[in-house]
C-alpha cells in the first residue's frame, strides 16, 4: 500500500461467479502450503498466464458472486501473493469475503460494470472511493463494518488477534 493509503494499479477483468476452483484449483491446494508455488497457478483455468502478466498493485475486477465455491483460504492468499492489491466485485460469496478480510486482502463491493481490462484505478479504502483514472470517473464503495476495517488495517485476523487478544466489536 502506498504511503497515503491509496492503492494504484491496473484492472484485470473477469465475469460473474468466478469460483474458488478457478482462483486456485483443488488439485494444487492439497499438495503444499507454499503460497509462492500456489500463486503461479492463480486463475490458471480461466485466464492462462495471469500470474505472469499481473504486476504488483494490480486489481482483480469482477462481476457478481466472486469467490463462490469452497472455503479454501488459499484463494485470497494466492491472489494476494500474486501481487494483487484488492479485488473489486459487484458482490462476493460470503466465505471468500470473510477469508479475504482475514488474510488482509481488501474485498471491495462496488459497481464494476464500467471498468475495462487495463484501466488504471485508484482505490481509497479509508475514504470509500474507487477512481477510474483511465475513464475519468469515481465510484463510492459500500463501506465495511469497523471490525473488518480494523482487521484489514492490521494486515489480517492473525495480527489483529495477536494485538487485541480477542475480538473487539
Amino acid at each position: 500500500m502506498a504511503g497515503n493509503g491509496i492503492l494504484r494499479g491496473r484492472a484485470h477483468v473477469f465475469g460473474d461467479d468466478v469460483n474458488t476452483d478457478y482462483i486456485i484449483s483443488g488439485k494444487y491446494k492439497f499438495r503444499t502450503l507454499d503460497v509462492e508455488e500456489l500463486a503461479r497457478h492463480c486463475m490458471e483455468d480461466v485466464d492462462p498466464g495471469f500470474s505472469e502478466r499481473v504486476r504488483p498493485g494490480d486489481f482483480i475486477v469482477a462481476g457478481g458472486n466472486f469467490g463462490c465455491g469452497s472455503s479454501r483460504e488459499q484463494a485470497p492468499l494466492v491472489i494476494k501473493h500474486a501481487g494483487v492489491s484488492a479485488v473489486l466485485a459487484r458482490s462476493f460469496a460470503r466465505i471468500f469475503f470473510r477469508n479475504a478480510i482475514n488474510k488482509g486482502l481488501p474485498a471491495v463491493e462496488c459497481d464494476t460494470s464500467g471498468i475495462r481490462a487495463g484501466d488504471e484505478l485508484e482505490v481509497d479504502l479509508a475514504r470509500g472511493k474507487v477512481k477510474n483514472v483511465t475513464r475519468g470517473y469515481t465510484l463510492e464503495i459500500v463501506p465495511l463494518p469497523a471490525v473488518m476495517m480494523d482487521i484489514l488495517a492490521e494486515g489480517g485476523l492473525t495480527d489483529y488477534l495477536r494485538k487485541h487478544g480477542g475480538f473487539k466489536l
Binding site: S71, E73, I95, N99, N102, L169
Partner: peptide, 18 residues
Amino acid sequence: TGVGSTDLAAAMLSGKLW
C-alpha cells in the same frame, strides 16, 4: 456454516467467533 482456516484457528483458540 463454512469458514476459512484462520477463522477455525481463532475458534480453536478462544472457543468463539464473530
